[in-house]
Design a protein around this nucleic acid. Structure first.
Lengths: 173, 173
DNA sequence: ATTAGCCGAATACATATGTATTTGCACTTT
DNA sequence: AAAGTGCAAATACATATGTATTCGGCTAAT
């Protein structure tokens, strides 16, 4: 039995729950190798494993790089906002920002509207570093996606977004 | 521009490299929200975030659960083999196994063929715990997959496996 | 048979992350 | 305007993970 469960058509709202067969971790025929979450972790792990080495040559750690990509998107940003986007605890981000300030990658200033908030901004040097890193990451991305069409990537994104949305709704237990 | 690049058909071996458009982290129009790896990390994070809480009620941590699922698949297994499958360093697994032995979840014995190797096996109590946890994890999985067809899951698996394979080949830089 | 080298696991040490607490600011209620 | 409450960030402390080293056992070359 391999993905040959009863219904394989796209599920509609209110429809009966599908039998997940091999994919369901509670199925007796389940294998890690067919587990979406295991494969996600695996792909993500390999992707970052390689990248970590390259980044370190430029004095940038994985979490620092992640913070930079968050900032590129939306700047300035508070510690809390960065933490949420980077899937990390506030305290951790707070310390990472300290190091980034030391390295001259970002600058901080307290929000004039609300002094509790620390606003973080990439410095020109930080932007420069990010620009230098971008093509490297781009090559790593291309390497990961060899043989996969843009259509497949779009499909992947749709599914991943649905999963995230589902898990965003309040947990059951 | 959203997934409307030149070629969207499935890529063949030896074909020209696709323009990844928005998906490529080195594209000027790139957004984290459209990054496959970011979304994988996000989905994985949420999935385990919820599960962690539930598991702790049963005295089981996330890494311990992961080791158990690896062992369910292939038993007995050496520390090194577990480490590789669980995407964790040997030293970390070594310590996790210590704790699991204390908790009575696994037993260890050295391989009679090669005394350097430590073989790890789930105890009946460990199997019992795993059986108790399985339906809980199953429900979490179902919750994550609401509205996603088995066909879509199969597609997701295929793509994730391809990505892992690609990254398994020797890195470029 | 002895030794050199390799390998798996364990451990000492360094680092990083998370949890709980503290500090300072803002806002509401009186 | 004073006090209580709530929030953001920072920090002290605990835990977990990773890196480098050590220990013991296997294997091959001499």
């Amino acid at each position: 039995m391999t993905g040959k469960s009863k219904s394989e058509s796209t599920q509609q709202k209110g429809e009966k729950v599908e039998n997940r067969g091999d994919y369901d971790p509670s199925s007796p025929t389940f294998r890690l190798e067919n587990s979406p979450f295991y494969l996600m972790a695996h792909a993500d792990f390999k992707y970052h494993e390689d990248m970590d080495k390259v980044l370190h040559k430029h004095g940038v750690s994985k979490p620092i790089y992640r913070v930079m990509t968050v900032l590129r998107e939306h700047q300035p940003a508070s510690i809390g906002a960065i933490a949420e986007a980077a899937l990390t605890k506030r305290s951790t981000i707070s310390r990472i920002i300290d190091r980034m300030v030391e390295q001259g990658l970002v600058s901080t200033e307290s929000n004039p509207e609300d002094n509790r908030i620390t606003e973080v901004t990439l410095t020109p040097a930080g932007q420069q570093t990010l620009r230098k890193l971008t093509p490297i990451v781009g090559r790593q991305f291309s390497r990961a996606m060899v043989g996969i069409s843009n259509r497949d990537i779009a499909h992947l994104l749709r599914t991943l977004k649905m999963i995230s949305d589902n898990l965003g709704k309040l947990p059951i237990e």
